[in-house]
Design a protein around this nucleic acid. Sequence first.
DNA 1: CGCAGAGTTGATACCAGTCAACAAAAGTGG
DNA 2: CCACTTTTGTTGACTGGTATCAACTCTGCG
Lengths: 255, 255
Amino acid sequence: MGESMVLDVARLRRGCAQCSLQQLCLPAGIGAQDLQRLDEIVRRRRPVERGERLFRPGDALSAVYVARDGAFKTVSISEDGEEQVVGFHLPGELIGLDALGAGEHRCEAVALTIANVCEVPFDLLAEVASQLPSLQQQLLRVIGQSVGRDQDHLGMLVRRQANERIALFLHGLAERFRNIGESGTQFKLPMSREDIARYLGLALETVSRGFTRLQDDGVIAVVGRRVEILDAEELACLAHGGDSDEAAERRSRRA
Amino acid sequence: MGESMVLDVARLRRGCAQCSLQQLCLPAGIGAQDLQRLDEIVRRRRPVERGERLFRPGDALSAVYVARDGAFKTVSISEDGEEQVVGFHLPGELIGLDALGAGEHRCEAVALTIANVCEVPFDLLAEVASQLPSLQQQLLRVIGQSVGRDQDHLGMLVRRQANERIALFLHGLAERFRNIGESGTQFKLPMSREDIARYLGLALETVSRGFTRLQDDGVIAVVGRRVEILDAEELACLAHGGDSDEAAERRSRRA
DNA sequence: CGCAGAGTTGATACCAGTCAACAAAAGTGG
DNA sequence: CCACTTTTGTTGACTGGTATCAACTCTGCG
């Protein structure tokens, strides 16, 4: 038992080369020697508590972050104090790019769970990237993926009604869980109904009703934050605006 | 007269160093010799016609584009054929970053007016950027600004009602016109009501009604696509969710 | 001049926000 | 470990903003 503890600590220390997220994160597609250069500039933080912030609006861009586990949300606060959830971040997804434009953060990044984070000082990252074409390429790709998620988010909000947004949200989240090697059919939501509502641009009551409805239709099973996807096909269909006969039938059977 | 023609042509050929957009576009903050390296890889296209496309969904990322004049929209087409306007692009704003993530474009870029475009082959850009830290930095900044605009777009859509969205849209557009040295109080919209509707996630009738209402309240004057902002302060106020007494009063006076 | 596309305006229906009460879960302290 | 508080989630009734359908007008253009 003492020995396995030692091994675990050693693994934590060994950094990017052993990280399970290697293929998703900055190291993807980088050779062994080069990987070491990246690894040297990555600072591993102590675990952050739920509710802790990585940065706040106005903070200078000093580093970008990647969660090794846990989850984060980024929130932008409008002048009237309304909080808009800009994105959720699962392990391997870069956090902090919102500061690229102006050099200071527009959002705050809040931990939704206890989490371990890799902190990558931005100036060093830029420096190393300019020396390693493969890292530069991967950096641009990761930034691009983040832009892509933002666009998906946009598509989720515009001209879609509440039930569609919710289906799309669950569908997308399931896919992201699968990508990082977790179950895409059974998971615990790291965020509250309110967070989801602020992400989807809905009232929290509407989100709650949407979940219930999906459950009534036999598409998912929900207990609090535990979600099981029972009919992934139907969920995908709802996400793309279709309301299949299947669901209609199930509803009528109950009535 | 012949002489001035020659001068004009020469100026067009002289490229980035003489471009009025220098401070907004990729060259910003780059030294004279380095600028030449960037200039050498930029291809100047013949003018593109209104309705012409720079790229389509699925096209490989071969270049990024910057309009020297005119305007573009980027449109993402969902599987059910619905067109969502992802962004409008004025001169100096990078077009084509949507392909960074997957290496192929997710959107199509359509010219809203006749326009001149600089085309920057992406592989060459990446190569030169890795050799010129100042260009790399500027590239990241321009990308960041684009991310910032996307986030503004998001904030424009979520939990804001129609009139707010429209006010915010006009307010933001005016600011962008000012940034490129054009009038921020009087301009011609390069896009149709339908484009605006698809950008704001509204029905086109709602956009039309919104414009009329702003006009009735004395905030703007609209004739077709010509817009004049009469009360910028009030517009800013409406954009941030306030419905001032001023406007209410004007409305009651009419009634 | 006449046509097609773009924009405006009106009437109606419905989705989702709001207010309110309640239920369940998660902390908290004795 | 249990009672208490607080937070989080669910459900119902009502209202209002916006989409939709439809008719009409205006503008630019061949």
